[in-house]
């Protein structure tokens, strides 16, 4: 039995301990905002926060999560959109949108460690997240926008 918190609520999991967090979130808890893109920690679509830091949920087995706090896109803000989501909308980042929740989670993680990231910081942090529609230039702009807003 694995005990963890997801978006603030206590959960207990007694399924296959090897099940990746991604499928627990999506298929069992129904938090489908976290996406499946590769299953191999190659694309970032499945990014969530573990104790505030970005991780790839597709490659994090449940057995590693005892006592951890997981935040998904559904849990990043209790009242209205998060500053990063607002910046995303202001810059009109999404095309198909499928990668964007993972991108947003990664950006939140970046901004929490580096509130004023440089271009190089952004490249470093965000290059693990693929956007097949090619919205990278807007993602960079939105991160800067969010950084400004938080300042």
């Amino acid at each position: 039995m694995v005990h963890l918190k997801v978006n603030g609520s206590a959960q207990a999991f007694d399924g296959d301990p090897d099940m990746p967090l991604l499928w627990y979130l999506r298929d069992i808890l129904g938090f489908t905002g976290t996406k499946f893109g590769c299953g191999m920690a190659l694309c970032g679509a499945c990014t969530v926060l573990e104790n505030g830091k970005a991780i790839r949920s597709c490659s994090t087995p449940m057995k590693q999560l005892e006592g951890r706090e997981i935040t998904t896109i559904e849990g990043i803000s209790t009242h209205g959109p998060h500053a990063v989501q607002r910046a995303w909308a202001a810059v009109n980042v999404p095309q198909c949108g499928y990668c964007q929740t993972g991108q947003i989670m990664q950006a939140i993680s970046l901004l929490s460690s580096k509130p004023h990231p440089t271009d190089a910081d952004i490249d470093d942090e965000m290059s693990g997240n693929i956007c097949r529609c090619g919205t990278y230039q807007r993602i960079r702009a939105a991160i800067k926008e969010a950084a400004k807003e938080r300042a």
């Binding site: 905002g33 996406k35 989501q85 949108g97 964007q100």
Partner: peptide, 13 residues
């Protein structure tokens, strides 16, 4: 754009 960024269940997946 707002629904997409909120992670609403919009996709086939």
């Amino acid at each position: 754009v707002t629904d997409v960024c909120a992670g609403k269940p919009l996709f086939g997946m």
